[in-house]
Computed example of a mutant assay.
Amino acid sequence: MNKIIITIALVLAPMLSQSQNFEKYENMKEVDAMVMTSKMFKMLAKVDLSENDPEAKAYMKLIENLDRIQIYKSSNAGVRSQMAADVKTYLQKGSLEELMRVNEEGRNIKFYSVPGKNDNYVKELFMFLEGGESGEKPLSVILSITGEIDLSQLSKLTADLKVPGAEELKKINKKS
């Protein structure tokens, strides 16, 4: 019986640690964190919008299908190093596929995803940004968005959230 429990624990441990890999950053004073859950998205989806605004309707459809958005940002060297190590571990454990890499103006941005119901949708979009433009403090940003994500609407959402690297998301949709 003990062997069965230990086997089950060993099988489930990577899955559980993968989903909680970045939550430790929420309470660090050196980290700016934002986490939005499905309850928040459902509440936002109930906002009464004009029937004549198709862009607003599409935006609401996007957010009501999201499960979670996590954004962690830090310029602290020690935290940035830990973030890089955690991202590397997360990518090795997960089923994420690389979408795109961008290295420009001192920033290195990598995008990954878990495929969705078709080529226009993903179940998870993951971004890791390192670096900064000259004269700026180096910065690391982790962005994870889960749910049924429409890539054609995603760049609008991340731009509204003012996520560094959001402008690069427009290029992902053009490539898909």
Score class of each variant (00 low, 15 high):
101 R>M: 00
165 G>K: 11
158 T>G: 02
127 M>F: 09
54 P>H: 07
118 N>R: 08
67 D>S: 12
76 N>E: 14
47 V>K: 14
173 N>C: 00
140 S>D: 08
85 A>Q: 12
175 K>Y: 06
116 G>L: 11
34 M>H: 12
142 I>D: 01
80 R>E: 12
102 V>T: 04
68 R>P: 03
25 Y>F: 15
130 E>N: 11
45 A>C: 01
29 K>F: 03
123 K>W: 01
97 E>M: 05
25 Y>G: 01
109 I>N: 08
36 M>V: 15
92 Q>Y: 10
151 L>E: 06
79 V>T: 15
60 M>S: 08
68 R>L: 11
153 Q>P: 03
13 A>D: 00
162 K>C: 05
108 N>D: 15
48 D>R: 13
151 L>F: 06
90 Y>R: 01
70 Q>A: 14
13 A>P: 00
173 N>R: 10
85 A>G: 01
17 S>N: 14
77 A>K: 14
144 S>R: 15
94 G>R: 02
105 E>W: 00
122 V>S: 14
30 E>F: 09
97 E>N: 11
66 L>E: 07
3 K>T: 12
33 A>I: 06
110 K>G: 00
11 V>W: 06
30 E>D: 15
15 M>R: 03
19 S>G: 03
63 I>E: 04
152 S>V: 03
43 M>L: 15
80 R>V: 05
10 L>T: 04
30 E>G: 09
80 R>T: 09
143 L>Q: 10
142 I>K: 00
